[in-house]
Amino acid sequence: MARKTNIDPDRGDARTRLLDAARDIVRSQGFAATSVDQLCKAAGVTKGAFFHHFANKEALGVAAAQYWSETTGALFATAPYHDHADPLDRVLAYVDFRRDIIAGDLEAFTCLVGTMTQEVYHAHPAIREACAASIFGHAATLEPDIEAAMKARGIKGDWTAASLAAHTQAVLQGAFILAKAADDPAVAIDGVDHLKRYITLLFQASPMGGQHD
């Protein structure tokens, strides 16, 4: 019988385990407060393994943002909000989906790239750029449905599909910050509920508001 080790072989290779550790620890305590030693301990790897995969902690931060995009992108790509026939229903169901995944401890549902952006935007431009690519890249996935909903309902105004998609992310990131400030996930849920009301009102605007042809 093989001797049992402390490392679960199903957790993936050393690089993946380090990225998983960064995802969890940075969301809990921030990037600056997270040490290489702490990451290695959580991942069950040696410090030598860390520096084999990452030149330094900043490189780990960039890779963690990219990893976050890949893993969350896969989650959203298969989410049920895509199943609706009407594009506005898809947009509103996206907001519902974001509300539904607000559960558990704050670090379990808050955004890694949003957390890192707030902390390192000036000190680590490479991490900031990777976080921006993640946030704005995700926002861009909403634009086709928003644009289709605008076209289907004859909506025209001083806003665009891109600006509304970006606004959804601004509200979500702000909701996470407020939830952290209050130490209460319910605050984030309230923010998402208001986002849904806002989007619904945008698409119900009267001709007097200049939103329709």
Rank of each mutant, 00 (worst) to 15 (best):
V91P: 03
A74G: 13
A162T: 10
R197S: 07
L106T: 03
D190H: 11
A74V: 15
A161R: 03
L106S: 09
L60I: 04
A77D: 12
A139N: 06
D145W: 11
W68Q: 04
T71A: 15
Y121H: 15
Y121G: 09
L112Q: 08
D145F: 08
I199E: 02
D96T: 05
D83K: 01
Q66N: 13
T117E: 04
E107M: 03
L142D: 06
F109I: 14
V171H: 10
A179W: 00
L195E: 07
F76N: 08
A161F: 15
T141W: 00
P185D: 12
A188L: 07
I189R: 05
T115Y: 02
P87M: 06
E70C: 05
G137I: 04
A65V: 06
D96S: 06
V187P: 00
H84S: 04
G154H: 06
F176G: 01
L112R: 02
E107F: 03
A166M: 07
A85Q: 04
E129I: 15
K151N: 14
V113T: 09
D96N: 05
P87W: 05
T78G: 01
I155E: 15
A179I: 01
I177N: 13
A74K: 15
L75A: 11
S163P: 13
T160L: 05
H124E: 14
L106W: 06
A132F: 10
C111G: 11
F54P: 14
P87K: 11
H138R: 10
A165H: 02
I127S: 02
A170L: 09
W159T: 09
L195K: 01
G114M: 11
Q169V: 09
A140K: 12
I155F: 05
A55C: 00
A85D: 15
N56H: 02
T110Q: 02
Q118I: 00
G137M: 03
A103E: 11
A93F: 04
W159Q: 07
K156S: 14
L172T: 07
D184H: 06
A182V: 05
T72W: 10
G114Y: 01
A123Q: 01
C111K: 02
T72Y: 01
I102D: 11
F54E: 12
N56M: 15
I189G: 00
T110I: 04
A181R: 14
A103I: 05
E129Q: 14
Q66C: 15
A93M: 00
A139F: 07
A108E: 13
V113F: 08
V187K: 12
E58F: 08
Q66S: 11
D193K: 12
H84G: 09
T115P: 00
R197W: 12
H52T: 15
E129W: 08
I127L: 01
I146V: 05
R98G: 00
K196Y: 02
I127F: 06
Y121R: 05
A85K: 10
R99T: 14
L142P: 04
D105T: 12
T168K: 10
P185G: 04
C111S: 04
A93S: 14
M116V: 01
W159H: 11
V192W: 06
I189S: 10
C111F: 12
K180I: 07
L92S: 03
A161D: 08
A65D: 13
D86V: 07
A161W: 13
I199N: 05
